[in-house]
Write a protein that binds this DNA or RNA. Structure first.
Lengths: 343, 343
DNA sequence: TTCTCTACTGTGAACGCTCACAGAAGCGCC
DNA sequence: GGCGCTTCTGTGAGCGTTCACAGTAGAGAA
């Protein structure tokens, strides 16, 4: 009989204990643990029973030491963190990645690199092989960390197309341009002709692509382009409010606004309200993200839903594939127009 | 000269390489790595130089294998995750813990235990010693995971006082009762006498304590208690809205409401607005949390600020102390009344 | 029979580190 | 000189696993 798998909390059982218990050798237990190839059914059975009886759990440190793999992956955020942690999409992403990895029994290490110091420390940590791969969230271009990791050959999947890097880095992104096109087309279909836009930061792929989609549709529809209808924000609520004020000043006849994020759209609504413009009667407002902010604001925002659940799942899938030796890949996922009260 | 600490990305340098490079033994390098006791200044110097030259980074797996420590800690969330991930406080907490741990060079493993299956797997993972300690976020009582971990002797710090468990588990919490007292006293000081409350779930410490604070102050002020003024919610926006409707029905003469969370308070504002009550003229509304929702809503919410930055820092401090062998501890941190437009 | 092939099993050696121990060197004190 | 003490250093062992290799046994083919 085995002793104490519940009571005496001394040393945890090792592969050796399991082997003795099952009447086989370490090697056989190890083989069972790693897929069970070249193991007789009877041995298989005996080992599994022994594992259950002893409460054995593999020591990942010992395993990692010899395999060189760490069997864990990092979730790296290289941004001023306040902004991201306030972004509901970020949370969906983080949760989705954690869950998707958990399904593969891979723990996720959360790493924040806000300051230059942290950046250095974390890069060292990663390149030292403490994680097998990295899920990177860093919208801005020219991120030195991404470049370093890529050069060091660390498997890497970015969320959103990294602007600065070459094509040899994997990424998963929603189809920003197409989403923007859908929204602007929707605004035009309502009969609006003075359609403005509040862009995101133009050193982010999202900012650039959404603006491009906006311009494309207007030009295809033969609507006159007017630079006074284009103002920039930084995805924050406050910047949306400021942008809307600028927009009203530059183009008082604006009758619709495509805002590149829901958070900014909230700010836009506030500014419009203060200016006495009714939404959607006077000005139709379209957001982007379908964040909780979209339903929280009044009127509820028509917006573009990004498939964050699929994005996180795809990021994990691509990263695991890359760790498994496959080549980098880019995945673009479709967006969806969600119509609510603001248009 | 050393070869390839940047170019040839073969095997990372080991403690052996550093020792050879520095002209000392493995033991001396190890001692330098672990605090530098019993090491001569000259050796110290030589080793540090060699580390810099070779780009050596300690292999934590090898270290963990022998020390038995994993030098990582888990952040465990045992809740239906949607709710928590949408809670801005949760994000501040997660970020704070990650940063506080990073300062100690300890990586944080994010673990979500939503389903029964995940719960089992994660409990196994933790009790197998893959993390040195756990930061637990689980507001509801009777959490089996917490109990199991406690029994297994895993160092544990909860966020908020765990109701079900004995006193032998550490926790860090804001002073809910005192915060509630401050808010209700504030409402009374405005001359309100029909002060209602929307409570949180009453199987959470926050829910219970905040209600207790509310009752204490009313009774101390000699204001007549009235059960029609007390309704319950579940911290969600929607539940706040429903609660406010019930409240208006049961006690139409209500002139102030203490709501146990900002999110619920948003719902309360919506319901009051719909019912044609002005805030704060007809009904003063006080929230709890000082979340972004507090400034996002209009009118901006008077609320109670919980010191989440300090809470996370204290959780980490207490956990590291407990891992270091100290006894469990409870830390209660003061809250702060933030006055805005809703009162 | 003998040889080969397949399916399975056991046995050292690592992996990179820390720990315990044994020593060496220096110093002061009897 | 002998002894003890402190400070410093090197060495072997071993943490729990996987991997490469060397077997063993049984089946089928020559």
């Amino acid at each position: 009989m085995t002793m104490s798998n519940t009571g005496g909390r001394r040393k945890p059982p090792t592969i050796h204990d399991v082997a003795r218990e099952a009447g086989v050798s370490r090697g056989t237990v190890s083989r069972v643990l790693n897929g069970g190839h070249y193991v007789s059914p009877s041995a298989q059975e005996a080992v599994n029973a022994a594992i259950r009886r002893t409460g054995y759990v593999v020591n990942r440190h010992a395993r990692s030491l010899i395999t060189g793999r760490s069997d864990s992956i990092g979730f790296l955020l290289t941004e001023p963190q306040e902004r991201f942690f306030e972004d509901p999409n970020f949370n969906v992403l983080l949760r989705g990645c954690t869950q998707a990895l958990a399904a593969h029994d891979v723990p996720l290490l959360l790493m924040l690199a806000g300051t230059e110091d942290e950046r250095r420390r974390i890069t060292r940590y990663i390149t030292a092989g403490h994680v097998d791969g990295v899920l990177l969230v860093s919208s801005h271009s020219g991120d030195p960390v991404a470049e370093e990791l890529r050069e060091a050959g660390v498997p890497l999947v970015a969320c959103g197309k990294p602007i600065g890097l070459g094509s040899r880095v994997s990424y998963v992104a929603a189809d920003d341009r197409d989403g923007a096109r859908d929204m602007v087309a929707h605004l035009l279909s309502l009969g609006r002709r003075r359609v403005g836009t509040v862009t995101g930061p133009l050193d982010t792929p999202g900012g650039v692509e959404r603006l491009a989609g906006y311009r494309e549709v207007l030009s295809e529809a033969g609507v006159e382009a007017d630079d006074r209808l284009v103002v920039s924000g930084d995805y924050s609520r406050a910047s949306g409010e400021a942008a809307a004020e600028r927009l009203l000043e530059q183009a008082p006849d604006v009758d619709a606004v495509f805002v590149a994020s829901d958070l900014m759209a909230q700010g836009v609504l506030t500014a419009l309200h203060r200016a006495g413009r009714r939404v959607p009667e006077d000005v139709a407002v379209g957001g982007f993200d379908d964040s909780p902010a979209a339903t929280a604001s009044s009127p509820a925002l028509t917006t573009i839903r990004q498939p964050w659940d699929r994005i996180s799942a795809e990021m994990v899938r691509v990263l695991l594939a890359e760790i498994g030796g496959e080549d980098p890949a880019a995945v673009i996922l479709p967006t969806e127009l969600v119509r609510r009260e603001s248009t």
